[in-house]
Amino acid sequence: MTKFTQPTFKLAFLSPRYWGTLLLVGLMYSLSLLPLTVQTFLGRRVGRLALKFMKKRQVTIRRNLELCFPLMSEVEREAIAIENIDNTGIALFETAMAWFWSDERVNKHVTIKGMEHLEELEKSGRGALMLAVHSMNLELGARAFGIKKSGMGVYRPNSNPCYDYFQYKGRSRSNRTLIDRKDVKSMLHSLKTGERVWYAPDHDYGLRRSAFAPLFAVDKACTTTGTSLLVDATDCAIVPFTMVRDSNNHYTLTLHAPVEGFPKNEPEQAAVFINKIVETSILACPEQYMWLHRRFKTRPEGENCLYRMCARA
């Protein structure tokens, strides 16, 4: 368990080594000033252009859809894939929105539903594990929520210290603080003291603290058992939420009622339970989910990889 140290600005970031990073952050800020319709228009173009040069990511998107929805027609899956590629580009702009928009502008474009569920938990003093999936607009959703009720974000530091500084600064604008993803002790303390902790258990994090559980049509998806660790030790509530952008470029963040029936002290059954929640959250808008992640890369011993060139992933 690693104690997280808040990144700070250093004069070294002004050296030529980080000029590219500073240029990128400056560009993100400049683009965030544009009207939202212009940003989404440009985002779609950026997504299609970028993935032309990242063909393996396109293959991953289509393979994930094929694995999860084998009964869906190829035409339907391809339509989702194309929209997903567009949304990959829009996600870059949505990150800039989350980092640089004013509270007023965020509130203008994001509607939050279901806040009453958290208000009830607050009255009881019970902590809430805010169960997310990696939708493309997750950062903007966290920012919008934090304006109303701050929480604790689980954070993976970036290997580039200059970018990490701006990422931390952007993500902590509305969150109370950020917790290193390895700092389980701080997560447990926060939940025990009635805090809200953002948590996304939908990716493949490897064999450590994991179980194989069904996810859509894949009967053995490597799934973290970290959810069990947090819930079993703190008796916190699990509150799923989704963030969806509609055809009018307006976002709706929906907080669902705390789930019932979580299998305590049964990590493998809990993984099955959590994946059902993940499925429901993804289906709220599959076009806006992060399908470019190799979700099913880790396989049980003796089983073949589900992707080509897994060793190079």
Rank of each mutant, 00 (worst) to 15 (best):
P161R: 01
D235H: 12
L65F: 10
G226K: 02
K123S: 10
N248Y: 04
I277N: 05
T8F: 05
M187N: 04
E66Q: 14
L191N: 01
F212L: 01
D235Q: 12
R208T: 09
L255D: 04
E303G: 05
S30V: 15
K185E: 01
Q269N: 13
L306I: 11
L92S: 07
P201D: 13
F100R: 08
D232M: 04
L118G: 12
I274T: 14
I90N: 00
M309Q: 05
G89L: 04
L129V: 09
W198S: 11
C310G: 13
K169N: 09
E195H: 14
G206S: 08
K276N: 14
A96T: 07
I147T: 07
M290S: 15
Y29C: 08
A144L: 06
V244E: 03
L292G: 01
S32W: 04
E83N: 12
A81H: 03
L11T: 13
G47S: 08
N175G: 12
V259P: 04
Y307C: 10
E74L: 09
I80Y: 09
L215S: 10
A79S: 06
D103T: 09
S30N: 04
F296L: 11
C310S: 15
I61H: 07
T95P: 05
V110W: 03
A284F: 09
R308Q: 13
N275P: 11
